[in-house]
Amino acid sequence: MKKQKNTIWIIIIALFLLGTMFPIYWMLVTSFKSFQEVYNLIPRLIPEKLLWSNYTELFTKYTFGPALINSIIVSTIVAVGTIVISLYSAYAVSRMEFKGKTFMPQLFLMAYLIPRTILFIPIYLLLAKIGLLNSIWGLMLVYPTITIPYATWVLISYFQGTPKEMEEAAEVDGATRRQVIWQIIFPIAKPSLVSTLIFSFTLCWSEYIYALVLINDKFERTITVALSSMLVADIIPWGSLSAGAVICALPIMIVYIFASKHIVTGLSMGSVKG
């Protein structure tokens, strides 16, 4: 009975892997193909021979190196900052009493209502005023508008669903708020925090329009703009573009696998059945 059930889930996972990974496999394969092979009428599932030149070109021809470093810096700082801020904000909303308790967090989500394809204009005006155009620090100032509403809300909804008994017991024992947050809530909320952290990271990682408009210097660029700058004519360098995608995926893979052990250490560790 149990075995059979798990087989079904394994089949489902296999299907998911197939659908998810095929396009990524295709990018991986393409990143090793020569220009001529990419443009074959009949595509080949395995490259004729593994060609590394697409990867080396990224760094020699397309200044991908600085862009990668910039993206890592921006995404890391914004993601970590977001988590700390959102943890406190979400705690305030769900555990403290004050006026505007439901209204204030809703204001957060209003931030998403107008698409970035429009918002970049006033944001540009604003950054021009404070002199932060053309620098990744400007991006760091803007990106939290994308990450904080999401992160705060995920944590709020998490808090809504978690019992308060342990916290209250600690408060009765005289624990300060800081102790409650970091010693009781933090360990329990870790799976949510880590997955929110990763999402915040990826939201910055793949952001394009602000990065394009706010940055002019090619050494301050982020990866998405570096990638789009490869599309200069009606002939797309598929090899290098795919190689760029593969390189963009690697840090996320590493972070994710590393973080994965924290994602499973929650209340439910070990005994989740369903």
Binding site: I24, A245, Y256
Partner: peptide, 16 residues
């Protein structure tokens, strides 16, 4: 597996 299934979200939209 989780990391792999997460990838489509992590890739820059432009390339994927």
């Amino acid at each position: 597996i989780r990391a792999l299934l997460f990838l489509p979200w992590a890739l820059p939209t432009l390339t994927s």
